[in-house]
């Protein structure tokens, strides 16, 4: 980072970055633990995740405040301005990721009341792994500023969407097979959707990071949709 004549300016910028990193770490941890709680039916861990969300909310507000004060006081230009605006946007995305993680944790008890087949959780776990990988890579790029690594991320977002569509279909099948599955499968459906949203937020962060570092918008050719809205199952599919 360039140095400014006023040293505390640098320190302010650095402080913003560090707070964002702390948020990122918490968000990653929350999603990971929420899925773990879901798979292992661990209500205690789920409660911890729900409590952890407070930190993200508070830190996001703090970052917002600090960023606004910084803009008012230092009147940043060019890359500094992008840095500050980027921090505001990334913190908003991370806060949403935390909310989605918290929402998964809240569903743990409802899902695990009726025991579901292991394969359902496996799919969910694989989906979560993809999303977490995406989030980790994006935040690593933010730390190292090596934006050329963002290119691969698009593929991965597409993978997440495909995987989500496939899970959606599978869950519908289970519901049609036995109506007693409907409660927990509906909750699982929301969990899957949440994870898919986390992947989208990671992609948003990637775009912000790209903009912060290069000053240009990431080209918009990403296929931003899953096909679950087209999935219709007939009785034959269930067999």
């Amino acid at each position: 980072m360039n140095t400014h004549i006023v040293r505390s300016y640098d320190e302010d910028l650095k402080y913003l970055g560090n707070r964002l990193a702390a948020m990122g770490g918490h968000a990653e941890r929350m999603v990971d633990e929420a899925v773990l709680a879901l798979v292992n039916a661990d209500a205690g861990l789920a409660r911890k995740v729900i409590a952890d969300d407070l930190f993200l909310d508070e830190t996001q507000r703090e970052i917002d405040d600090k960023a606004i004060v910084l803009i008012a006081k230092r009147q940043p230009m060019a890359d500094d301005l992008r840095e500050v605006v980027g921090a505001i946007r990334i913190s908003a995305d991370l806060e949403r990721v935390g909310d989605l993680g918290k929402n998964i944790a809240k569903r743990v008890v409802a899902v695990t009341e009726g025991r579901q087949p292991l394969s359902l959780f496996r799919g969910l776990q694989a989906l979560a792994e993809l999303a977490l990988n995406q989030l980790k890579d994006v935040l690593d790029v933010y730390a190292s500023r090596s934006v050329e690594r963002l290119v691969f991320m698009r593929d991965r977002d597409e993978q997440i969407d495909l995987m989500y569509t496939s899970l959606f279909r599978e869950l519908l099948t289970y519901m049609m097979e036995d109506p007693r599955n409907i409660t927990s499968c509906t909750h699982l459906l929301f969990c899957a959707k949440n994870i898919e949203r986390i992947g989208d937020h990671a992609t948003n962060i990637a775009e912000t990071v790209y903009y912060v570092v290069t000053g240009e918008q990431m080209p918009i050719d990403r296929p931003k949709e899953d096909k679950s809205h087209k999935v219709v199952l007939t009785g034959e599919d269930v067999g």
Partner: peptide, 20 residues
């Protein structure tokens, strides 16, 4: 840790709350 060059902010790379 895959390309951690000097100049990297450690707090940003190692984001786990305990590490922080």
């Amino acid at each position: 840790f895959n390309a951690t060059a000097p100049g990297l902010s450690l707090l940003m790379k190692f984001r786990a709350p305990e590490m922080q």
